[in-house]
Simulated assay, not measured.
Amino acid sequence: MPKTIEETNKALVLEAFDALFNKRDYQAAERYWSPKYSQHSAHIAPGRDGLFNLIKSAPSTLRYQHGAIVSEKHLAIVHGRFSGHGRPRSWIAADVVRIADGLRAEHWDVLQDEATNAESQSGLPMFGTEFPA
């Protein structure tokens, strides 16, 4: 049975994040990001090169873990954690991706420092089922 566009886009987003952030396979990552990629993040320089150069300059300990992902037509939103980036706390992110012609064409994000157990008013972690050690 053929995959829906939403299933295809979810897989594309997760494969792209893994190739770039975890494997640092820039050649593979080029297959996922459009050469005309638009970046709306306040933390990243414009275009695909801006993103790739940021990751090239990040510590080798940088890791991305994905959580929930939803997709509708040409948009996908993934909830994830960026750790090992050299800052005191991991970032919890909501990344919104527009996909066009099978490539990541546009990106927006919302980033927040991960709360500790003591800071969490709800007593629940921001990502996963446990607070980070």
Rank of each mutant, 00 (worst) to 15 (best):
P59T: 08
D101C: 01
H66K: 04
G102M: 11
W91F: 15
G80W: 06
E72M: 05
R81I: 08
R104F: 08
R104V: 14
E114K: 00
I92Y: 06
D113W: 01
A94R: 01
G67T: 03
R89A: 05
G102I: 12
F82V: 05
R87C: 01
W91D: 11
E114W: 00
D113K: 00
S60K: 12
R104Q: 14
A100M: 13
V96D: 03
E106I: 07
K73V: 07
R87F: 03
S60L: 11
I69R: 06
A93I: 14
S83I: 11
G80F: 08
D95M: 01
R81S: 09
H66E: 11
A76C: 13
E114L: 00
K73A: 11
V96E: 06
H85D: 00
L62W: 09
I69F: 11
D113F: 00
Q65Y: 05
E106Y: 03
F82D: 10
T116K: 02
K73I: 02
A100G: 13
E72L: 07
R98T: 10
I99S: 11
I99V: 13
E114Q: 00
R63H: 07
P59A: 07
F82L: 15
H85A: 01
G80Y: 06
T116N: 03
V97Y: 15
A76N: 05
E72H: 10
N117V: 06
W108H: 06
K73M: 03
L111T: 01
E72W: 04
R63W: 09
H85W: 15
L103T: 09
V97F: 15
S71A: 13
A93G: 15
D109A: 02
A68S: 07
S60M: 08
E114D: 00
H74S: 13
T61D: 03
H107V: 01
I77K: 07
A93T: 15
A93L: 15
D95R: 01
W108Q: 06
S60D: 12
V97T: 12
G67M: 04
T116A: 07
A118Y: 03
R87V: 00
H79E: 09
W91V: 10
A94N: 15
D95L: 03
H79R: 06
T61W: 05
G80K: 08
I69W: 12
A68Y: 02
W108E: 06
S83Q: 11
P88V: 06
G102V: 10
D113E: 14
N117I: 07
H107M: 08
G80M: 10
L75E: 07
V96P: 01
S71Q: 08
R87E: 14
W108D: 05
P88H: 12
I99A: 08
A94I: 06
R98W: 02
P88W: 07
S90L: 10
I99R: 10
G80P: 13
F82T: 05
S71L: 06
L111G: 01
W91T: 13
G84H: 14
W108K: 04
A94P: 01
